[in-house]
Simulated scan of single mutants.
Amino acid sequence: MDAQNHSAVTRFFLEGLTDEPSFQLPLFILFFLIYSASVVGNLGMILLIVLNNHLHTPMYYFIRNLSFIDLCHSTAITPKMLVSFVSGKNAISYNECMAQLYFFLIFAIAECHMLAVMAYDRYVAIRSPLLYNVLMNYQVCSKLMAGVYFLAIVGSTIHVGFMQKLLFCKADLINHYFCDLLPLLSLSCSNTYVNELLVLYLSAFNILIPTLTILTSYIFIIISILHIRSTEGRFKAFTTCSSHVAAVTLTFGSAIVVYLQPSSVHSLAQGKVSSIFYTTVLPMLNPLIYSLRNKDVKTALKRSFRKIGFSWKKKMIK
């Protein structure tokens, strides 16, 4: 990425969340706690699934990948923001900005398609429980994950590739706390028509297609649940899906506000507030969403704590 060939501006300045000095320390503490909880929660979920054999199922394979995506998603944004709170320097080089944008887009797009894959997985589990392990075998799950990352990398590469073709002349203050598509496009002195079309069409593909997939899956899931005669069976099926519905609603709701509004009504300030949710808060919430109402995860946690307690007692005795 050679900034000199594409841009007169070699570095940008991030406006951040606020320029009030009195808010910098409280915001640093708040987002440090959120990021710490996100790292602990997602790494904990990954390790819990890896170390417990009874969680080696397609459902938890996808949850493990979602935790990895959330961990990388927040890591692409939050550490730089925390440094800015402490140092007061919000400068970011052109190459760093493009790199941040590239990795942010990869994991943002991957999360959208990951949630669609998880909806399909729940559909197969409830619609064909006896054939579930056959229909969702390791090869199928691997191909679905490869498709998720392929679409994410292609989408991100297209966006960043066209972004690098733009010229940034004098304006270098990004009205955001990280390098995002729309704030960067607003600074360019080139014609951004093609880039704006890409934002619209690729956002529609990466948000609406997964949304339609999820809605279709859940229509069939609800029909299947209503055919379950046992009240206990219906409750278990609804409980299994409720956590996924919560994650989907939070993710796509905030993404639609930022990327699928008409440019005439879109506000960068509003987009900044909405993006806080899906870049920092949601990666922290997902491990809680998928663990608090999940008996298998609770059982695995109890077993892990017992093993830790047992090994600690053995060391104390020795």
Rank of each mutant, 00 (worst) to 15 (best):
Q4I: 14
E15L: 11
F23A: 12
L27D: 13
Y35K: 11
A37T: 13
N42W: 09
M45W: 04
Y60S: 13
L66P: 00
L71W: 06
S74M: 01
M81N: 02
S84E: 15
V86F: 04
V86I: 09
K89P: 09
N90P: 06
S93I: 04
N95Q: 14
E96T: 12
A99W: 09
Y102M: 05
I106V: 02
A110E: 00
C112R: 03
L115V: 03
Y123W: 12
S128H: 14
S128C: 12
L130M: 11
Y132D: 09
L135E: 10
M136D: 08
Y138Q: 15
S142W: 11
K143P: 02
L144M: 06
V154C: 06
M163D: 08
Q164S: 12
K165N: 09
C169H: 09
L173Q: 09
L181S: 07
L184A: 01
L187T: 00
C189N: 03
V194A: 08
N195A: 04
L200K: 11
F205M: 09
L212A: 05
I214V: 02
F220Q: 08
I223M: 15
I223G: 10
I223W: 15
I225S: 06
I228S: 12
T231E: 15
A237N: 12
F238K: 03
S242P: 13
H244L: 15
S254P: 08
Y259R: 04
V265N: 00
K272W: 10
K272L: 15
V273N: 13
V273L: 15
L288T: 02
I289M: 07
S291A: 13
R306S: 11
K313Y: 09
